[in-house]
Write a protein that binds this DNA or RNA. Structure first.
Lengths: 401, 401
DNA sequence: ATATAATTAAATCAACTTGATTTGTTTTCT
DNA sequence: AGAAAACAAATCAAGTTGATTTAATTATAT
């Protein structure tokens, strides 16, 4: 047996790549910064920063703003991210809808397309997704050299026997299907695939309420329920890419039966599907989140479900806080924002946990900023994140083929 | 407001430090390796490795072994970790016992001391711990320049209002007490403090059953219950150093009352304390784990507790698997090894989770290798780990004061 | 005028890489 | 059996890269 591949070493080239990312990240989280300010922030020398900034400006990733007068000394030239320095395509596939967007580096949507689907199989979905990507690029024209990649979000979990394709919250027929490879083959563009919760987490981290945070959990309430984990500045995906699939954690032993074979799973209480069933909405397979929004407007018609859902949700938050000690828990997903806000307002009092400390700068629970498009926007953020975020991987020399 | 400190950049010095760690880690996980083999494993050039190995050998961290003949070409000189290249002091404080060890780089215990305590306050414990450290160094003499530091393990959580000092499983009076600083002041040696579960996890990762793993969870069953999280090659401690405090997650809504104010917390079922209470052992504050070992030998006297504990334990494992998708879950703690093994044998069938896949190389649950000294050994491993493990932090230039 | 802060330029330095060379075996050929 | 060839490991020396240092320059406020 050959020795297992170890953590790789690094060299100047990798180091530079890291430093470039560090510069971008500093500006992204702080807003426009002068070279001198970046140097202070990153502990690098002003000369190094000057070189890197010059290079990034030449590549149009950064752009200079008006000089900042009013202070002593030579006036500083602040640099900010150039939105048109790069573009990204985000795709999202769910039970009833396929959505695609093009965003620029600032996360602004420059084109958007949606198409209805009905619990699609891979054979149905792949050509459709490729077509959406193509249509998006016809709709919004830009220098193809500036396209960073395609990010795709879809419901997890991936490749779990007896779990991926079971029950009403999973998409059928996707077990073992190599989504990223296939889509990459069809489009000729590099593709990253993540589950919707993870994608949403990245979106909130790059552009939303989690912009400055080092560790947080995104609780994605969709057809089912999942968590996106951002820990110590890194996305955590798990050893088999399935971290955060907490929809099937048990919150009520002996409770409602679940498609996974257990009883009392979290997503039997907190999910769109659970809401539809609890509220006895006909044909839950084809119900839409807007229906809940409508009910919300209509007095307390949601109450029956909220009462059932709120304590399981509290338990889930409590468990995540205890297990991961995040700076905050962000709530979002396909559930309409109004409903999310209703749930959030009903959470008080949260259970005691390690998050129960007065030395907090962020509330224990936040509502996500991106609304119903969270996961497409997050999907589009994936390539941007992987190209610009400082990560441990970057410092490691790639093993040659 | 000054801009928040960003992720720092890197330079040659940091890069070298990383590469040194990479070399050590490669040998640690693979056993003795020749320079050429290290180069292949780390993707660095043979020349670079040659330089680093030479340096590490000069510092006595590595030592050459007999050349390896029998193959073609010039025979390789394998290098292995020199156990006497460094030493570490591990301290462990619990309700009834303070233990200290000196280990060498290979994790072998070279001296051990234990002293009884009774739910000690900081004022009582700090001088005692300092004294243990001093006595250890009188007992086993070595070059003080080779002492990497003191690692200390104690029950968490840290600094949580209404949680740290509440209930029979927490140590009273430690809220806000700066343990590491104080012990460092008393001994003049750098000190790292972690909760016992985290320490144990590091121990298993360096020397135990988790030696080669990138992501695993250590479930520490002690007076209470906690988890140590090792994710993607890094220790995850949480934003306030309290990750893994899952003893207070709810496994039975409306179940047994807990000191934290909730009902049905995990550690009310799975912990030494829970076992003592369930088995109606008199004076649980001063009972000892050996008592359970004795009961175990005595037929099925533990059965009443095992029946109560096993499903909450299953739930906890299920939740951890779903949330973190680790390669495995390691079971250990102060609970006697025999009892841990009994629990492990009773876990089957585990609940369905993302870990339920046939493509596994490691069982879903393992019993820790270190036995009852897990957390002291883990504590001693802390300074070794932080000095030798490749980590993201290492690449970041420290901000000057 | 002077102090101050930002930026730039040139020279220096540390660590990795490259390519050629040396070394000590094993294998193959005569 | 002895010599030559093949081979892999290790070393040497020169070259490259990118961060740092030092010194100078610039633009502003006091």
């Amino acid at each position: 047996m050959p020795p297992r591949k170890a953590i790789a070493g690094t060299n100047l080239e990798q180091a530079k790549s890291h430093n470039r990312r560090v510069v971008i990240e500093a500006i992204r989280t702080n807003g426009a910064l002068s070279r001198a300010a970046i140097a202070r922030l990153t502990a690098l020398s002003t000369q190094t920063i000057s070189n890197i900034v010059e290079e990034l400006e030449r590549e149009q990733l950064l752009r200079a703003q008006a000089t900042l007068k009013g202070a002593r000394g030579q006036p500083a030239v602040p640099y900010s991210i150039n939105p048109d320095g790069g573009y990204s395509i985000g795709l999202q596939l769910d039970h009833q809808l396929a959505v695609g967007v093009i965003t620029d580096l600032s996360g602004t949507v420059r084109a958007r397309i949606e198409r209805p689907v009905d619990r699609p199989t891979p054979a149905q979905a792949m050509p459709l997704l490729a077509a959406i990507a193509g249509d998006l690029m016809r709709k919004f024209r830009f220098d193809r050299g500036r396209l960073l990649g395609i990010g795709m979000a879809m419901p997890g979990p991936f490749d779990v026997e007896g779990m991926t394709s079971v029950g009403p919250t999973a998409l059928p027929g996707w077990q073992d299907f190599p989504v990223a490879e296939e889509l990459q083959r069809l489009t000729g563009i590099p593709v990253t695939v993540e589950n919707d919760a993870t994608a949403a987490a990245i979106g909130e981290r790059l552009y939303g309420v989690a912009r400055n945070l080092g560790s947080f959990v995104y609780l994605f309430i969709g057809t089912g329920l999942g968590a996106g984990l951002f820990l110590d500045g890194h996305l955590y995906k798990g050893s088999r890419h399935n971290a955060g699939e907490i929809g099937h954690m048990i919150v009520k032993p002996g409770g409602l039966e679940c498609g996974c074979g257990k009883r009392g799973c979290l997503e039997r209480y907190v999910s769109l599907r659970a809401a539809y069933e609890c509220l006895e909405i006909p044909d839950p397979d084809h119900a839409s989140p807007e229906l809940l929004q409508a009910l919300l407007a209509n007095g307390d018609s949601l109450e029956a479900w909220v009462v059932q859902a709120i304590d399981p949700l509290r338990q889930a938050i409590n468990m995540l806080e205890l297990a991961l000690d995040p700076e905050t828990v962000v709530l979002g997903g396909f559930m309409p924002v109004g409903v999310i806000e209703l749930l959030a307002s009903r959470l008080d009092p949260l259970y005691l946990s390690v998050s129960s400390t007065s030395a907090r700068t962020v509330p224990r629970v936040l509502v996500g900023a991106a609304g119903k498009d969270t996961s497409v926007l997050g999907a589009a953020a994936l390539p941007i994140f992987s190209e610009t975020n400082p990560q441990f991987d970057v410092l490691q020399k790639p093993h040659s083929a």
